[in-house]
Amino acid sequence: MAPATAPKLARLENKCLVKHAPPRAYSQNEGSHVVYIKSSTPYISALKRIERSLDGFRPLPNRNGSPVAKSGSNIKYIVVKGMGKAIPKVVNLGIHFKYDKQLHVELYTKTIGVLDEFVPKDNENDDDDEEEEDDDVLRKRNVGSVELHIML
């Protein structure tokens, strides 16, 4: 049996779509071990960013000569996240780190809810100011997402 797929949500006509970022919790030190990839992130930039966060967990001698990792030792893996159009890029990054860099890599799939806002298009009815417009419409949408764990 084919898996049940949710019907694709249609865009509202004559409306401008404003996309909102998916909700996520604020964490101050996320930058050291979580890398977000978007569709416009260049592949090589993503690669370098991950390499840099991996470097943060590699021990280097401190002033006493004992090896210490810059980003601490509590983290077990580096997380690379991407959704929608960026999924293939994240998967490709996973392949790179698995085969070229010989690291242990895990891949998880997820679904993430996002908010779409539809606002009336500009300059449509400049002449008749009196005409009432509809309110902005907000709608939930689900987007596929992948999460890559690159073990240190």
Partner: peptide
């Protein structure tokens, strides 16, 4: 209370 918000809230 913990939302990281740059563009989430309309």
């Amino acid at each position: 209370s913990r939302l990281n918000d740059t563009e989430t809230v309309p």
